[in-house]
């Protein structure tokens, strides 16, 4: 192979990688827009998933450009994937359950729950298990997959009133301003909320890129919970979108 054709192949490889980067970004924005009313955590996971998928396809094409055989590449990827799946089958079930329970199972650290014959205060939720502290000061480890199979009872007082909305925002967003906008959005649906409790925004974690928050609302009527969550998520998406654009303009 001449130096010229090698340079050409490398240039094509680079162009595909660049193209993949652009396509992944576009797909990510499209997903963000399409799923704007969804729970932010789920939306962000879907964005990541789509992005990874685009990168896998892009990389396969890029390497094919360098002369690596496509069928061979796919076979290797498939075998690795199968091996990993078999090796961590049980763990994956728990991790997957954790992912869903994060969003859809109604308990959090600090709540008192009854599940699979155990009752206790939730003191830890890790990717594999949820740890309960019983009245007898025993630790009970409950595999996360149990929560998708078995009936769970959350017996924390007034827990039915509580709505927890997970939010992740770009760290460039001015948090005090964002909070003000969120409070204003909550004020607009106050007739559905228990007026004794103001909406509370709590920082759960932060790094250079993002800030994870939880918005706690107390509802008057449990029947309205899902509608309130949908409405608030929609508002939060709009606020975040507006503030990101404003910060980019600056």
């Amino acid at each position: 192979m001449s130096l010229e054709s090698l340079m050409l192949e490398l240039a094509e490889f680079g162009a595909i990688i660049l193209g993949t980067f652009v396509v992944a970004k576009i797909f990510s924005l499209v997903v963000r827009s399409v799923f704007r009313n969804w729970v932010p955590t789920v939306r962000s996971h879907i964005q990541k998933l789509v992005s990874v998928a685009v990168w896998v396809v892009g990389l396969v094409f890029a390497f094919q450009q360098l002369g690596v055989r496509l069928d061979f590449l796919l076979l290797i990827l498939g075998l690795i994937g199968l091996g990993v799946l078999i090796a961590v089958k049980d763990t994956l079930a728990n991790v997957g359950a954790k992912y869903f329970s994060d969003v859809y199972v109604p308990f959090k650290v600090g709540d008192i729950i009854k599940v699979a014959g155990s009752t206790g205060k939730v003191i830890e939720i890790n990717p594999i298990t949820t740890v309960l502290l019983t009245k007898k000061e025993e630790l009970v480890s409950v595999p996360n997959s149990i929560f998708l199979r078995e009936k769970l009872r959350n017996i924390t007082p007034h827990v039915w009133r509580e709505i927890l909305v997970p939010i992740t925002i770009d760290s460039k967003i001015d948090l005090p301003e964002f909070e003000s906008e969120v409070l204003r959005a909550c004020n607009k649906i106050r007739k559905y909320l228990d007026e004794r409790f103001p909406p509370v925004l709590t920082v759960k974690s932060r790094n250079q890129k993002s800030v994870s928050l939880i918005l706690t609302l107390m509802v008057k009527d449990p029947d309205k919970k899902s509608e309130i969550v949908e409405e608030i998520n929609k508002k939060i998406f709009e606020i975040e979108h507006r503030m990101v654009q404003a910060s980019q303009r600056k």
Binding site: P176, E179, S180, L183, R184, N187, E195, R196, P198
Partner: peptide, 22 residues
């Protein structure tokens, strides 16, 4: 007092405390 929680003044009160916290 709880009607305060749903007024613009409470938004400002929370804002001030959040700025301090930051």
């Amino acid at each position: 007092v709880n009607s305060l929680f749903w007024q613009e003044e409470f938004v400002d009160y929370t804002y001030y405390n959040r700025v301090c916290s930051e």
